[in-house]
Design a protein around this nucleic acid. Sequence first.
DNA 1: TCCACAAAGTTGCATATGCAACTTTACTTT
DNA 2: AAAGTAAAGTTGCATATGCAACTTTGTGGA
Lengths: 135, 135
Amino acid sequence: MNTENYCIAGRLRMLARVMTGRYNDAFTQEGVTFAQAGLLMRIFAQPGIRQATLSKQLQIEKSAMSRDVQLLQKNGWLTDNLRNGLFLTEEGTLLAKRCHKIWKALNQQVWEEIGPDTVAGLSAFSDKILITNTQ
Amino acid sequence: MNTENYCIAGRLRMLARVMTGRYNDAFTQEGVTFAQAGLLMRIFAQPGIRQATLSKQLQIEKSAMSRDVQLLQKNGWLTDNLRNGLFLTEEGTLLAKRCHKIWKALNQQVWEEIGPDTVAGLSAFSDKILITNTQ
DNA sequence: TCCACAAAGTTGCATATGCAACTTTACTTT
DNA sequence: AAAGTAAAGTTGCATATGCAACTTTGTGGA
């Protein structure tokens, strides 16, 4: 493995595509994508959180976040005043809980599949990158 | 770090977003995204390659690949008969070469920034995932 | 109180992606 | 050669994202 042909960004993008597909499959039964489930679970864990905060946590551009959030609301999972902090509806809360069960099982499974050392490798990489790119 | 709150897919997606942004910045001067530059460089390295082959190499769905390729063609970087293997036009070839220079410098820089051990961590992770998800 | 400025959120525009269904091509077996 | 089938490619539809420009909100100072 050398600098000449190992593209960091390309590799990350490919991995993200592959893993996203796998997680998406798991959430199909609930009719949500992994991206949506992830947001629901975060809002469940941090009720009243602002879009700007989620943007920073997830490193997603604020306009993209705005649309992701609007999609959740369109599906009836968020209460109406988006500009005053995000809150799940009752339906959204139940869905978030179901998603968390699915997520927990799958994440555990993937974790075991690849082993703690390998996850540690990703984690180390992640720390380096995120420190560099988010102050 | 434990299974309870470290989401593999979420982390990968975030890293992909961050790194994509960084690589995109580098290619802005050429008016292409990293995704486009990456395809150009691959077609440069493998003239006549089929969409289906690129799809497998990059783990991108064939319909997405079809559109990515059409976009390159629309910009005049690919010759016309897409269904008979992909070939760069003269303009496409020059662009691919310029992109490769940019890519090489940036990838090298990122590589040094995070260090070989950390890259090795990503690589190990990558191998595990891709073996599992691509036979 | 009112204004100026910064932060948060939205919208227009464009790319990147996936799934399903459909079309086109290529190959194999009569 | 004709039919049937599998592989490759496309298109409709929807989500996920980013950049730039604009609007709304909130806050601190004159």
